[in-house]
Design a protein around this nucleic acid. Structure first.
Lengths: 108, 108
DNA sequence: GTAACCACTTTCAAAAGTAAAGTAATGCCT
DNA sequence: AGGCATTACTTTACTTTTGAAAGTGGTTAC
């Protein structure tokens, strides 16, 4: 009766968590961009070609809610916001690099 | 002017390829199910709770087009169709297992 | 004073996803 | 012989998500 989540869905639960974090169309690009250190909103926008503001905002919010990034606001002028990977986020590096290698190898 | 794809987008191209394959809402679940061997359409439907027929069809077609699964039809009655991972598909196992471990570790 | 910078928000159309029912060929049961 | 089940999908109608573009508000450089 304890260990709820693991007991309840185990494998599939992990899968759900993963998909919620990296399943989105842009999440992986964002995480990838953040591997090289914290970034401001506009930096991310420039680093990820094709993304639009709305989606970047949404994904960042989702990632913050999922605990894989932190958002820090600076009362500068103009205002500055920095996004950083948490430990949980950083731990995705191995997985994403693996996927990445696969992608590089299999681009037809 | 040659080596088009690599030259044109390099890193980002690999990312696109990856997302096209595992970025869809259900792709990873399907690939995961196929790691344990070929499956029929209805087996996949049963193995992946929550998916609907239309989406399963769509994802399978997409995966076939992406060369990560093969589709084999048997003229039995009722007809049987088997889906199998290609080598390209199988090569995703390491990456997905990595992600998987992450998911298991960080399910809050 | 007006144009630009930053980090968003809003609006609306388009694309993607979901649910549920339908299709065609056959076999099994009664 | 009629009806139901099985398999692998289609089709239709609908909801949700995403995308493109313009707008907001405070400040500062020109």
């Amino acid at each position: 009766m304890s260990d709820k989540k693991v007991e309840k869905c185990g494998e599939r639960c992990a899968l759900q968590e993963i998909l919620d974090v990296i399943g989105g169309k842009w999440s992986m690009s964002i995480i990838y961009a953040l591997f090289s250190g914290k970034k401001r909103f506009s930096e991310l926008e420039r680093l990820i070609p094709g993304i639009n503001t709305r989606m970047l905002v949404k994904e960042l919010k989702n990632m913050e809610a999922n605990g894989i990034i932190t958002r820090e606001v600076f009362a500068t002028v103009p205002p500055t916001v920095e996004y950083t990977l948490t430990t949980k986020g950083e731990k995705l590096e191995a997985s994403i690099n693996e996927l990445y290698k696969w992608g590089m190898e299999y681009v037809a």
